[in-house]
Write a protein that binds this DNA or RNA. Structure first.
Length: 225
DNA sequence: CCAGACGTTGTT
DNA sequence: GTCTGG
DNA sequence: CCAGACGTTGTT
DNA sequence: GTCTGG
């Protein structure tokens, strides 16, 4: 699963990357703070198609279906295996795919307790998760929310957790956002040998802890006699 | 037809 | 809203 | 995802 | 345990 991640670039650097890599000149970002600890419900940045152009926009992390009575139960993930058939996601899958910008995520390994790990893509810097978006009604104002697709973990990721986010490479990103995307087998693309993983401290557990300390490696102390 | 679920994860 | 189950 | 709350009434 | 909030 993917329930906590980061996007820690300064706004200036992020805007530069958006222009160089996506030719986005006027990102429609109404709120951004660099974060080492993005939690469900927060404002995040994603790329989506608007007027047939790739645009950057602000989204809430967590889709809330229009019929939902329990407004606080956000759908932060969507299973890639079933996204085409589930009524909650099917329309978004057809018409509202997005790329959720990131430079790494966290996963907790259950082992009696829970140990957090920081996972990133080797040398890639900024990358993205395949996502879906939909509108939600915020006191009469329609706003955008999104979910991160998940897939079965493979390789070293499966030692930590059985699920991982769907990560797309540059060419897959373009296909994912294209209007004529059909089922091009993009939902299970990541070879986790490309991922770099290291243990971090439980400092990251608390969402309000938002600093570089979240991603600092923990070296397990050897107990010597 | 109406009633009830509709999502994911982890844990049990 | 839309689908499934009875 | 994890952390933290989880209840009511009356009085200040 | 289960729900809410970030």
């Amino acid at each position: 699963m993917c329930g906590r991640y980061l996007l820690s670039y300064d706004l200036e650097d992020l805007i530069k990357i958006l222009e160089e890599r996506w030719n986005i000149r006027q990102p429609n970002i109404d709120y951004y703070e660099p974060s080492y600890n993005i939690a469900p419900g927060q404002k995040i940045i994603a790329l989506y198609k608007e007027n047939n152009e790739v645009a950057a926009g602000s989204f809430r992390w967590g889709i809330e279906p229009s019929w939902s009575k329990n407004k606080s139960r956000l759908l932060i993930n969507a299973r890639s295996e079933t996204v085409e058939e589930k009524s909650t996601f099917r329309d978004s899958y057809s018409n509202r795919r997005c790329l959720i910008l990131t430079n790494g995520f966290y996963e907790w390994k259950r082992n009696g307790g829970k140990t957090p790990y920081y996972i990133t893509l080797n040398e890639a810097g900024l990358f993205s998760y395949a996502g879906l978006w939909d509108y939600y009604n915020d006191n009469g104002i329609m706003k955008k929310a999104c979910s991160i697709l998940t897939m079965e973990s493979n390789g070293s990721m499966s030692k930590i957790h059985n699920r991982m986010p769907v990560i797309l490479n540059a060419s897959q990103e373009k296909i994912w956002l294209s209007e004529n995307y059909k089922d091009q087998d993009l939902l299970n693309p990541m070879d986790s040998s490309l991922l770099h993983i290291h243990e971090v401290s439980s400092y990251v557990n608390k969402w309000s802890n938002n600093s570089k300390k979240c991603i600092e490696p923990v070296v397990n102390e050897q107990i010597s006699f």
